[in-house]
Design a protein around this nucleic acid. Structure first.
Lengths: 261, 261
DNA sequence: ATAGATATGACCGGGGTCAATCATTTACTC
DNA sequence: GAGTAAATGATTGACCCCGGTCATATCTAT
């Protein structure tokens, strides 16, 4: 028996919401909840999957727990090698008892993962990056401080005045920051709010390290973040000559490359 | 062929990490990644499931997105009816454009879910409760502000000086708070840090509502949180006479019961 | 060194899942 | 109002998943 389009749409919406809430549901549960036959439940799942609103699994389906987390995870897979190398380098710079800032982005996530393997004593991590809760929250011997701020829709990041204010109250030994691009003019990022927070952090940090992999070379973004003169060091899987070819001239000792550790 | 215990543990750790990263993995992929047979992969899954470190599904497994969320979800199932009624009552008190505080606990989570269904215009939600990110983060028309603070191990809550300081800077119209018990002497909670934050919030809030279901009646906890005289109202699925039987005497209008809406 | 415990992989029967097909009912369209 | 397209549920055969058992190999404790 054919049913109005609206009913179908409503049911599928309800299905996505159910999956968002519960994470995973086996087909039989879906049928119960929606009051339809298995066949229809399957058809709904196929439809929603082709729209990329859910993920099917054998025997059930997953809500796209957090659409942002997925794209985050995907980005995480790009340049894994370089990012891991940079993360190892970053962690090797941390001494026991330090207070360290990790900002948003996938490189910071790699650093957090590396910290799980190789954790200095008495570390305090300060961040605005909610994605780090997973890797860091379960470490008993590290303290994790989250800056306050406004939750960005579809991103797992805290920003805004609150975040800047909270950052200005922190004592930070090392800040590990990311950026979307680097050119001869310096470092670039896309959002004003992100840059405001990064600048507030840099002001409070004894040393500010920027962590960028080679894929960022030559890219420009809408907003200028920092000059090369204002950063403590660049952690990057490129050599001095390679950087120079793009017009980036660094003072000696300002480049830390993963191979050198 | 038996293998050292350490190897098994290492593989299982790797498995949980894989699942944490990728969210869902079918068994066959797990075998490839870990280089073991299907049987062993299954055994690992069973072991990790009994430790509640992952969630099995038919045909694969899920990482425990957040281990704490699960026990949280389980608590959520207790007294669902009462909590939902309280949540609906709470939401009915919210007017468009208000700034509302939700604290930790499952009742606040119910309120957040109710807000998804029934969202006042221009709402701002302020919270220290990370579990609310899921339901609230994806609402485009509401603003969510997270207080800063120290991440509590295995709890999805932010506490400490930072949180108190951040709360003291907020403008709050309505605060919806929870507690672990209520007796004639007032409201009780277990942790000092939680109470400090709740008191800071109460100081900043125009109205403070405490939301407790009937199961909290007569329970005492280590720390005294508030007298009955200091709260704006109690939202509770109990009647005045029922409360009086436990020695709780409320001024008229101080009890808001779900049935009365 | 020996015995017992434990991890592993292969195999199998039972049962669940999936996609395709078909008949039926009902909503849309002209 | 008639025809067409869409949605649904039932069925079916192929495929896949699961837990158990068993033989085997290796670690560990005595």
């Amino acid at each position: 028996m054919r049913v109005p389009r609206q009913v179908v749409e409503a049911r599928r919406l309800r299905l996505t919401e159910l999956l968002q809430e519960r994470g995973y549901l086996p087909i039989s549960d879906l049928c119960d909840e929606l009051g339809v036959s298995e066949a229809t439940a399957r058809r709904d799942l196929s439809a929603l999957e082709s729209e990329e609103r859910i993920t099917r699994t054998y025997g059930g389906a997953l809500g796209e727990f957090n659409a942002s987390f997925i794209s985050f995870r995907e980005r995480l897979r790009e340049e894994t090698e370089a990012k891991n190398a940079i993360a190892r380098t970053a962690v090797s710079l941390i001494k026991p008892g330090m207070r360290v800032y990790l900002d948003a982005g996938t490189t910071a996530f790699s650093i957090a993962q590396e910290l799980r393997r190789n954790l200095p004593e008495g570390l305090t991590v300060i961040t605005n990056n909610l994605a780090l809760i997973e890797p860091l929250g379960s470490l008993p011997s590290a303290k994790t401080i989250l800056l306050g701020g406004q939750l960005l829709e579809r991103q797992s990041v805290l920003l805004g005045d609150e975040a800047v204010r909270a950052a200005a109250l922190q004592k930070i030994d090392l800040a590990f920051l990311g950026a979307q691009g680097m050119t001869a003019e310096g470092l670039w990022n896309s959002q004003r709010d992100i840059i405001r927070l990064q600048q507030a952090v840099m002001k409070r940090a004894t040393l500010s390290f920027f962590c960028l992999d080679h894929s960022k070379l030559g890219h420009k973004a809408p907003e200028h973040l920092a000059d090369w003169s204002s950063i403590s060091a660049l952690i990057c899987d490129l050599s001095i000559p390679e950087l120079r070819r793009s017009g980036i001239l660094l003072k000696p000792g300002t480049l830390i490359s993963p191979s050198s550790i």
